[in-house]
Design a protein around this nucleic acid. Structure first.
Length: 226
DNA sequence: GTGAAGATTAACT
DNA sequence: GTTAATCTTCACA
């Protein structure tokens, strides 16, 4: 029996939440029906010290204001003027964070997702590409700015634990598409399920190297930066 | 008011 | 591997 994730799940630090969201099930209900998919790829974005994050330096704007509420809300934004991406907020106003949902393994409502993505051929290799990327996920699940700030404890979009346990191996790399962010480009904050065909970019090794653990910024509720 | 840049994708060569 | 598509957001004046 699947259980909807509690508020407490999201209130922890963003890296922990990003790791633990793997294997969980993202659920989206609309008038057209219900869709489900296992989260197979995530990226963590931190608040104050992460140059790749939209709230680097605790930057509060109209776009980022949901980061400063309690974790467990939908952060939806437009990128490149074309694509929507879905983030899951973590922590609270003292420790803003978010987890980018990069890929899903669709389990329910596949016809509906194909429809929204304009995919007619339902051969396996096309299903692999249904949600293999942050903007593909939004297309398939009909996620746009209208969902900005939605509470994930509500009913239109939420995440549940399907009880898969830890029956998978976690892969770790640096994050994709943030080469502009200096040393943050090397933080090992992308997580994915190893050997899963639905992951977006396979064999990605990062721009150069991954940072050593002691180079990473720490997450604290108060105090100095690393 | 203006301008630069982007947590991407699909379609090219 | 390279590039166009496309427009909101935010810094700065």
């Amino acid at each position: 029996m699947s259980v909807k994730l509690s508020r407490e799940f999201y209130l922890r630090d963003t890296v922990t939440v990003a790791r633990e969201l793997l294997g969980k099930c993202l659920v989206r209900k609309t008038a057209h029906g219900i869709c489900r998919g296992i989260i197979v790829e995530t990226e963590a974005y931190g608040g104050r010290f992460d140059k790749a994050s939209h709230v680097f330096g605790n930057k509060l704007t109209d776009r980022t204001k949901i980061w400063f509420e309690l974790g467990g809300h939908a952060y939806v934004y437009l990128i490149y003027g074309i694509h929507h991406c879905l983030g899951i907020t973590t922590g609270d106003k003292f420790e803003p964070g978010a987890v980018l949902i990069r890929a899903l393994e669709p389990t329910e409502g596949i016809d509906l997702m194909c429809n929204r993505r304009g995919i007619e051929n339902t051969q396996k290799k096309y299903i692999y590409q249904l949600c293999s990327g942050p903007s593909k996920v939004c297309q398939a699940l009909e996620i746009d700015k209208g969902l900005y700030g939605q509470d994930l404890l509500g009913d239109s979009i939420f995440i549940e634990d399907p009880g898969l346990g830890d029956g998978y191996e976690t892969g770790i790399t640096s994050r994709i598409g943030i080469d502009y962010s200096g040393e943050a480009a090397y933080y090992p904050w992308r997580f994915f399920i190893k050997n899963n065909e639905y992951v977006s970019v396979k064999n990605y090794t990062g721009p150069k190297k991954v940072a050593m653990h002691n180079e990473l910024p720490l997450f604290r509720t108060s105090g100095e930066q690393s």
